[in-house]
Structures are given as structure tokens and as C-alpha cells.
């Protein structure tokens, strides 16, 4: 076992599910916390399109209800990310990752642009099927080692199958679209700056976390 996270700073016990914070995960948690605070406090951007070659420009209006809905989704996404950062249980982590995925869809789903919705739909399909590698990976690890707890697995003595780890990583990639931001670039055309950036940040954070998990167990 490789200890890349450092010593436990704080352990929160929920029955069988532990939440633990090492210097590594605590840093990620703080980033998510700060950004969620920013999302709560800030006002959304107002996009202005300029017609090329002329003086005309038009501002995209965001209605109040849409703004509130997207802020709600961004906050939910931030909370889910914070949960995923600390979770010390594989299955609990996969559930938090799914929550990040669906909140990401929600952030852009309220936009009324056909192009954005197309991209969000494709992304949503991927986020949905990504639950197979996520749950499959957690189930494979549970079946072959008899435990889901990351600290217990990290203590050694278990032969965690490689395919289980690969499934976990693949699932997080699917939920967050972490390495390929192709669809996300399309989704960023949606107006409302702090909220869409939450999509990116949350997927980056859960990807960093799954790397830690895969190396640790």
C-alpha cells in the first residue's frame, strides 16, 4: 500500500461508513467548500453576444427562477463533491459521484439553448451508464475482499482485483467527464459563470479523489 494522502487528521464515524480526512482530501474538501461559498455569494454573469462586423449586440437574459434553480443545483453539486472528498467507503463514494453527475446535468438542463441541451443530453447518457462501472467496481471489490471500507483495504492483506480499480476509475471518468472536456466545452456556452464552472471543478475534484483511492487500496 502507498500512503499518498498522509495521516488522518479527522475521522467522522457514521456506523459502517467512515469519513476520514487526510491532508490530501482535506485540501480538496476545502477547495470544494470555498467554491460552494462563492457560488452562494456571487451573482451570475450576464452574457452579451456581439454581432460580428457591426455595432449590434444582444444580451442573453436569465430569468430569476432559472437562476435560482441553477444555483440550487450548483450548491447540491458542491455538497456532493464535499461528501465524495471525505467518504471512506467505496459504495458511499460511488453514490456521491453519481450525485455529482446528476447535479452537473441539472446545472445545464435549465438552459433554453438547443445546442447546450444536446450536449447535456449526451453527457447525461454517459453519466447514467457510468453507474455500471462505479457500482460494478465497488461490488467486485466487496466480493473479492469482503469489505468496502477504504481504511480497512488500505491496511493491507487484501488482493484487490485490478479490474475493480479500473472500473472505479472509469466510472468516475464517466460521471465527471474528467479527462475529456469535449462535451463540457459545449455546455459552457450556457450563460451563468459560477455555476457552469462548478461542473468542471467537481469533476476535477472527484477524479483527483478516485486516483487517491485507487492508489491507496
Amino acid at each position: 500500500m502507498l500512503d499518498i494522502g498522509g495521516d488522518n487528521l479527522f475521522v467522522l464515524e457514521f456506523g459502517d461508513i467512515l469519513h476520514y480526512y487526510t491532508p490530501y482530501t482535506a485540501t480538496l474538501f476545502l477547495v470544494a467548500l470555498i467554491f460552494t461559498g462563492l457560488v452562494i455569494a456571487s451573482r451570475p454573469e450576464k452574457q452579451v453576444d456581439i454581432a460580428f462586423g457591426g455595432d449590434a449586440y444582444y444580451a442573453k437574459e436569465t430569468t430569476l427562477s432559472e437562476m435560482r434553480f441553477r444555483r440550487f443545483m450548483a450548491i447540491a453539486c458542491g455538497l456532493a463533491t464535499m461528501g465524495a472528498m471525505g467518504s471512506g467507503d467505496l459504495f458511499n463514494f460511488t453514490l456521491f459521484a453519481s450525485l455529482v453527475g446528476i447535479a452537473n446535468i441539472g446545472i445545464v438542463a435549465a438552459v433554453k439553448s438547443r445546442h447546450v441541451l444536446d450536449a447535456a443530453y449526451e453527457y447525461g447518457i454517459v453519466a447514467m451508464v457510468a453507474t455500471l462501472p462505479l457500482f460494478g467496481g465497488a461490488a467486485l471489490i466487496l466480493a473479492t475482499t469482503g469489505t468496502l471500507s477504504i481504511p480497512a483495504l488500505a491496511a493491507g492483506g487484501f488482493a484487490v482485483p485490478l479490474v475493480g480499480k479500473a472500473f472505479l476509475a472509469l466510472g468516475v471518468i464517466g460521471e465527471g467527464m474528467a479527462p475529456f472536456y469535449a462535451a463540457k466545452a459545449e455546455m459552457f456556452r450556457a450563460p451563468g459563470a459560477p455555476y457552469v464552472i462548478m461542473c468542471s471543478l467537481s469533476s476535477l475534484l472527484i477524479f483527483l479523489r478516485v486516483v487517491e483511492i485507487v492508489i491507496t487500496i
Binding site: S98, G101, I102, I105, A109, L117, I125, A127, T131, F135
Partner: peptide, 24 residues
């Protein structure tokens, strides 16, 4: 006990996505 969350996640994402499909 784990199948229940698995099932619920699938069903709820299906509901959200089908609404997006309808709007799109």
C-alpha cells in the same frame, strides 16, 4: 441493501434525462 440505492439511482437519472430529452 446495496441493490436498492443502485436501482433508485438508475430510475431517478432516467426521469431527469427523459425530461431533458422532451425539452430538447
Amino acid at each position: 441493501a446495496l441493490i436498492l440505492p443502485g436501482l433508485v439511482v438508475g430510475a431517478s437519472e432516467l426521469i431527469a434525462l427523459s425530461e431533458i430529452y422532451r425539452v430538447k
